[in-house]
Design a protein around this nucleic acid. Structure first.
Length: 444
DNA sequence: CCAGACGTTGTT
DNA sequence: GTCTGG
DNA sequence: CCAGACGTTGTT
DNA sequence: GTCTGG
């Protein structure tokens, strides 16, 4: 499923995130956008949809753009949680009813089928959250791309006129079965479109035969990663960078001896687990050894400071054993060496923890500070750092610089902007396996 | 014909 | 709006 | 999705 | 457990 996400992207970065590199872009209702580390249904998010009015007038000022109408898109801020247009005006909109749409059945469901021809859109986010159940306990994980590039979800939107005559735009995110790598966490995941071709196919209203084969679990096992985060973010009002701070999971057994053995067992198991390929694995792969040899980091707790509450940190009950139960596929041997140490770096937390806490909605200024992507970028890329070493570090730097440039050049062109064409290799190559900045910024 | 539904997730 | 059920 | 409430009478 | 609220 997908019921919670992080979107702190700058408005200006959204078209690019959705591979709309050349098209002219118009913004709509973007003043309603509030970047957040904890977005849930009922909140606004920017989506990218085709400029729908008759194609002709699209270029309000698109002189220079000269983009073909067919390429014109709108970054339109809508509420997450579909409210079909046929909803009775008297009804109170329930955004939690249809915040997801099973991709396998959108062509059969009355509420979604009607949207397929002309109401497709894309949703870009930095990552999303998924809860792993452990009996009564639920441990949230943050899932994102290793290189920090935004995820692009396939979505459908609709417009509904409420009793006050206002038109409410809402959208639903398509889901599919989980990739083999994420199966252990959850059986459903959002449909992730990983390259320009697929986003084009989805946006351009191609027939079912064309798109149904891309509404599939994202299986590029090397670029999606994850790690456990504070259970405190389960509270919808808990917002800020601390939502994505990696935490350590506590081992269940209290007996040291038990711990010892379970840890060993864990290492063995993990290493052979398929999950291992994803840096995700490192989250727990490294945990057992860490908690074993080191102290639990009280730092975690400090991260919570922003949200009063009591000891949410009791997440310690998370049994490592749960990982063993995963039906991972056996594969390679352990190489936990480097990965292990890597996890250590994660704990360095994002700078602006303080500024964000509480009242994330206050004003745009605050939001803008996030757009710069300075602080939070670190935590995200830490994974990159640890996993892939120098090479990826470079990427990260490039990415940041790129963003910096963007900020300088595009800040004032939010209304209508067209990005210069950047000829690059075909996007498909890049998006596979080892996504690079080229794959992200490149265009066909 | 009219009336009523139109959804997903998770859990059991 | 559109489809299903009665 | 998760979090949090889950109630009435009577009095001020 | 179940429903409401965010």
């Amino acid at each position: 499923m997908c019921g919670r996400a992080r979107c702190t992207l700058r408005a200006d970065d959204i078209p690019r995130a959705c591979y709309r590199n050349n098209s002219s872009v118009r913004n709509l209702h973007m003043d309603r956008y509030r970047p957040s580390y904890n977005v849930s249904p009922g909140h606004h998010l920017p989506v990218v949809r085709r400029e729908q009015g008759s194609s002709s007038s699209a270029s309000a000022a698109g002189a220079a753009a000269a983009a073909s109408e067919s390429d014109a898109v709108v970054v339109h801020c809508m509420k997450w949680g579909l409210i079909p247009s046929f909803t009775k005006k008297s009804d109170k909109p329930d955004h939690y009813k249809m915040f997801n749409a099973r991709s396998e059945s959108i062509s059969e469901k009355a509420s979604f089928r009607r949207l397929i021809p002309k109401n497709r859109c894309l949703v870009a986010v930095e990552g999303f959250y998924e809860w792993k159940k452990d009996g009564q306990k639920k441990q949230p994980y943050y899932i994102h791309f290793k290189d920090g590039r935004p995820l692009v979800f396939a979505a459908l939107y609709d417009a509904w006129e409420n009793s006050e005559g206002e038109i409410l735009y809402t959208f639903t995110i398509l889901t599919t079965s989980s990739s083999s790598a994420l199966q252990w966490l959850h059986d459903r995941m959002p449909v992730i479109l990983g390259d320009k071709v697929s986003t084009d196919t989805w946006l351009n209203g191609s027939s079912s035969s064309k798109f149904d084969n891309m509404l599939k679990p994202y299986e590029e096992t090397t670029d999606l990663v994850w790690y456990p985060v504070t259970p405190a973010m389960g509270k919808p009002s808990f917002d800020g960078p601390e939502c994505i701070n990696e935490i350590k999971l506590k081992i269940e057994g209290s007996n040291p001896i038990t711990k010892f053995f379970s840890t060993k067992a864990a290492k063995k198991e993990e290493s052979s687990n398929l999950e291992e390929k994803n840096s995700c694995a490192e989250s727990f792969k490294t945990d057992p050894p860490k908690s074993f040899k080191k102290e639990p980091e009280t730092q975690d707790n400090t991260a919570f400071s922003s949200f009063t509450e009591k000891g949410d940190q009791d997440s310690r009950s998370n049994p490592i054993s749960k990982f063993f139960s995963t039906k991972g596929i056996k594969e390679e041997e352990s190489n936990s060496e480097e990965k292990k140490s890597s996890a250590e770096y994660f704990m360095t937390d994002p700078p602006k923890t303080k500024s964000f806490k509480k009242e994330p909605d206050t004003e745009d200024n605050k939001a803008l500070s996030f757009f710069t992507g300075k602080g939070d970028q670190d935590s995200t890329s830490s994974v990159v750092h640890s996993q892939d070493g120098p090479a990826k570090c470079q990427l990260k730097r490039d990415y940041e610089e790129f963003n910096a440039d963007l900020e300088k050049n595009n800040d004032e062109t939010s209304k209508l902007c067209s990005t210069p064409a950047r000829k690059k290799g075909n996007p498909k190559d890049c998006s596979d396996k080892q996504p690079t900045l080229f794959s992200y910024f490149g265009k066909s």
